[in-house]
Every structure is written in structure tokens, then in C-alpha cells.
Design a protein around this nucleic acid. Structure first.
Lengths: 184, 184
DNA sequence: CATAATAGGGAATGAACGTTTCCGAATAAA
DNA sequence: TTTATTCGGAAACGTTCATTCCCTATTATG
């Protein structure tokens, strides 16, 4: 079932919600129509489950990227680098389910809107915490405004996913180097 | 006809391409089905015309924002501020047709993908030019890498539109102040 | 004045969609 | 072995969609 959900995630990331038909879904999940409707109430429920699964996975990935840093500054660098990599190439063109949901659904779907907001807030808080950690361990100057900088970095990460959907190549390391000036 | 197209822009920005039916379109444009199909080949053509009109308008708006600055640095600040304002409140929730097209269509629609890429490239080049102008007039240090910084600022602007689709309030001036550190 | 041409409106159409329902196979219980 | 139950598969349903066709005003033209 989880592997079927992973396949659903792929389709939704690739095509978005409205452009994904039940037929696309059953083909990707390798399930018949009836089976999908036995496991989920409707298409919307499949999407919500896929969203949940996607965010759990991504959360784990950026957390583990952060952990590979020796101090707050390096942890943020790793998070940004991880985002650049996920925004590039095949993975980038596949897109981000959070960004996709924000653009396609959040204006008219309160349930999705709430989950998107929660996910963005979580990401922003993670960055803010890493900034404060860095200020505590001396790797980031104290005059850096943690909350505003975190919000701007949130914009950067979400923007990278937008740019990554088109084919504009992102030169990861150099882009992150520039972004790190925000911590000066 | 142009006013009908403006109404079409509103609907597409609000709902996206796939969630907008011909019925929605005719209601918004105050035209009958037949009239729409007499003016445009199909729904896709309506969207392309709306996209064209939207980008022309936005281009004009950010250009004029830039012109209100006394030097390169202030021009960039004004462009960023203009983006924050357009990403906020009602206008922000209405969304950006470029971002929407990038997310919803560019992966499977080469025509739209080309226009989105072109628009992003234009925006990026404008910022890069303003950086170089600022370096020429002394308001921006010469060691700032124009192209990379421009690309990161492109990510920032597109990211603001994503965040602006949800209700997260963006504190414009402070956010831009932080972003201006990229020009230090 | 009569007629041709055009533009807009709205009903009709066929396809595709999301959803439901029913059927058969496999598994567990008796 | 027989019965009960669960699970996946596929056909059927009603709806909605994009698109086409035809009709009716209105304007321009001879």
C-alpha cells in the first residue's frame, strides 16, 4: 500500500491534482478503480494521503541534511544545498507537492491550504532554529534577524522549486554561496 | 476584447488552467461559448493570450518600479518591494500566471514552457542589468557576482509568490532589507 | 431598399471524468 | 469439504467538460 502511495505521489507531483485522472492514478498505482475507492474515499483523499507521505519524506530528508553540518551555519548551508539538488534535473522537473498544492489548490481548498501552511511554517521554523543555533555556537553573527532571514530563505527554497520546474539550470554551490551572505 | 481578456486573466490566475472550465471563462468574460470560440481557436489559445497580456502588464509594472529608483541599488530595492506588494493580500492570493504556468503546465506543454522560460529569463536579466548599473554608479560593490545574485533574486521573487498564495503575511520592508544584504 | 456579410448567443454533441456497483477469486473459519 | 469474508477487477452510471453547429440580430454594401 505504501509503495502504491509512493507511485501516486509521483503522478501528482508530475501532473498536479486536476490533470491527474483516476485512470492515471490506477495505472501508476497498479490498482483497479474499485481497489482505489476501497482504500480511499475519493480522489481528494488519495491526494491528501500522498501529500502526507511526501511531506514526511521531505521533512526527513532536510532534517538529515541539516544533521550533517558541524554548526548552525553549516547546517543551513546543507539544507539549502539539499533544496537546490532536489530542485534540479529530473527530480526538479517532477516538482514539489507542497508548491504545487499551494499554487493549484490552496486558494479554493481549505483542507489542503491548512496542510500547506503548516508545512511552510515547519520549514520556516526549522531554519529559524538553525539560525539561533548558529548564533549560540558562534558561527552566525548575533545581529542577523532570525525570523526575517528564515522567511526570506523559505522564499528562496520555494522559488528554487518554481525555477527548477522549467529547465533553467541552477548552479547549486555558487547559488548557495551567494545566499549565505544573508547570514553575514 | 482586451477587457474580456483581462477578465480571463483573473480567472486563470485564481483557479489555474485545468480547474477553469469554459463555463467559468464565458461567465467571467461575459461572452457566450460560441463567441469565445470565434475569437480563439480553443481554451489553450485563450490561455496563451491571457498569459501574454499578463506578462506584458507585469513587465511594465516592474520596469516602472525600477525607474523610481535613483541608482542601481535603489532600483533593485524598488523591484523587490514591488514584488512583495504584488505577492500579498488579495492580489497575492490571486496568484501569478507565470508561477502557475510553470507549476501546472510547463512540464507537459512545450509552448507554455517556452513562454515561462522566456519570462523568467527576462526578469533575471533585468535584475542582472540593474546590478551592473549599480556597480557602474557606485551603489553596489564590484565584487557582487551579478549573474548568480540575479538568479537568486529570481528565486526570491518567485518564492514570494508561492508563499503569498497561502496566507502567511509577508512583512515587506523588513524582508527586502534582509534581501539587500545580497548586494553587500 | 434589398442583400450580403459578420459577429454574438445558445442549444446540441461526443468524449472523458469521478464514482458506484457488482462479480469472481482467494483466504480463513467451521 | 463447505461456508463466510475479504479483496481486487471491470463494467456501468450520471455528470461535466471542451467543442461544434446553427440561428438571430446588426452592420455594411450594392
Amino acid at each position: 500500500m505504501d509503495t502504491a502511495l509512493d507511485r501516486a505521489v509521483r503522478v501528482f507531483r508530475d501532473r498536479g491534482y486536476h490533470a491527474t485522472s483516476i485512470g492515471d492514478l490506477t495505472a501508476a498505482m497498479r490498482l483497479a478503480t474499485g481497489s482505489v475507492y476501497k482504500a480511499f474515499r475519493d480522489k481528494h483523499a488519495v491526494f491528501l494521503a500522498a501529500f502526507e507521505r511526501y511531506t514526511a519524506l521531505r521533512q526527513e530528508q532536510t532534517r538529515s541534511a541539516a544533521e550533517r553540518g558541524a554548526n548552525g551555519r553549516e547546517q543551513i548551508r546543507n539544507v539549502l544545498l539539499s533544496y537546490v539538488e532536489h530542485s534540479q534535473g529530473v527530480e526538479g522537473r517532477r516538482g514539489c507537492l507542497v508548491v504545487g498544492s499551494a499554487i493549484e489548490l490552496s486558494a479554493h481548498d481549505p483542507v489542503v491550504a491548512a496542510r500547506v501552511s503548516a508545512q511552510l511554517a515547519t520549514n520556516e521554523k526549522l531554519i529559524a532554529r538553525l539560525i539561533r543555533d548558529g548564533q549560540a555556537d558562534g558561527s552566525i553573527p548575533c545581529h542577523v534577524p532570525a525570523d526575517e532571514t528564515a522567511r526570506l530563505m523559505l522564499c528562496i527554497t520555494q522559488g528554487m522549486r518554481v525555477v527548477g520546474k522549467t529547465r533553467l539550470p541552477l548552479d547549486g554551490r555558487r547559488l548557495v554561496d551567494v545566499a549565505m551572505k544573508l547570514l553575514a
